[in-house]
Simulated scan of single mutants.
Amino acid sequence: MHDSALVLFSGGQDSTTCLADALSRFRRVETVGFDYGQRHNAELAQRAVVRHELQARFPAWRERLGDDHVIDLQVLGQISDTALTRDTAIAMADSGLPNTFVPGRNLVFLTFAGALAYRRGLQVIVTGVCEADYSGYPDCRDDTMKAMQLALSLGMDRRVVIDTPLMWIDKAATWQLAHALGQQADPAGGGEALVDVIVEHSHTCYAGDRSQRHAWGYGCGVCPACELRAAGWQRWRAGPAPSAV
C-alpha cells in the first residue's frame, strides 16, 4: 500500500488539484517545481502561496504536506525555442503543434522527479498531465506516462508509479474534482474554499499576467491556457446540460 507521494507542482490549476488529490490519499506528500526559464515564471512565486493556503484552510492536510523542492532547469529553456521560453507570439508551428510545446519538458521533469523521489523515499510521482482536454502535447499522453514509468522503474531498479489523476477528464471536471476534494476534507464549506484557493492564488496564464482578475482567476484572458481554464469554469458553473425531452 503506497502512503507517500511527490507531486509535480507548478502552481497552476491542474497541479493544485493534483496536490489536493494527493493530500486526500497519501500520508506524506512532498512537492517539486522546476525553474526552466519559463516566461510565465509568476507560477513559481504562486507555488508557496498555494501551499500556505492549503495548510491554513485545511487542517486535515496540514501535517501531510511536507517539504517543497525547486530544481533549476534553466538549461532546458536555453535549448528551447518556444513561446514559453522566448518572447514570441503564440502560434501553430510547422510540426502541427502549438509553439508553446517545450520538447522533452515532461520527460526531463519526470526524470528529475524520479531521482528526487528515490532520494526522499517517496513511492508515487503525481503529475497533472491530461489527454482529454489539452493542447496536443505528445509528452502529456497516457502512453508517454506509461513508457516513462517503465523506464524509471528499470533505470532505478525499483518500482516507480506515475499517477495521473486528470488524464481522462476535461477542465470542467477538474474544477468539479477540486470542489469534491475540498468538500471531502472539510464538509463545512471546503469545496468552495478549495475552489477559491485555485481561483485566487494558482497561476495558469502563459503571459504571466496577474493584473487582470476574472471569475476563474488571474490571467491575460486570451492565451490558450487562459481560454481553456475559462471555458472549463463556464461549463462547470453552468452545470449539467438539461436532458432532451
Rank of each mutant, 00 (worst) to 15 (best):
M1I: 12
F9D: 02
S10Q: 02
Q13S: 05
D14I: 02
D21H: 13
R27V: 04
E30Y: 06
E30T: 02
D35K: 03
Q38V: 00
R39S: 10
R39A: 08
E43Y: 06
A45P: 14
Q46K: 15
E53T: 05
E53Q: 07
L54F: 01
Q55F: 07
W61K: 06
H69S: 11
V75R: 14
D81V: 11
L84V: 10
T85A: 02
T85C: 04
A91M: 05
A91D: 04
D94T: 08
L97P: 14
N99Q: 04
P103Q: 01
G104W: 03
G114E: 02
G121L: 08
G121C: 14
Q123K: 13
V126E: 14
E131M: 10
P138Q: 11
M145E: 07
Q149G: 13
T164S: 12
K171C: 10
T174M: 01
A178L: 06
A180M: 15
A185L: 00
A185W: 00
G189D: 04
V197P: 11
V197G: 13
V199L: 13
E200N: 14
S202L: 01
Y206T: 11
R210K: 15
R213F: 02
W216D: 03
G221N: 09
G221Y: 09
P224L: 05
C226K: 07
E227A: 12
R229H: 03
Q234M: 08
R235K: 09
A241K: 13
A244S: 02
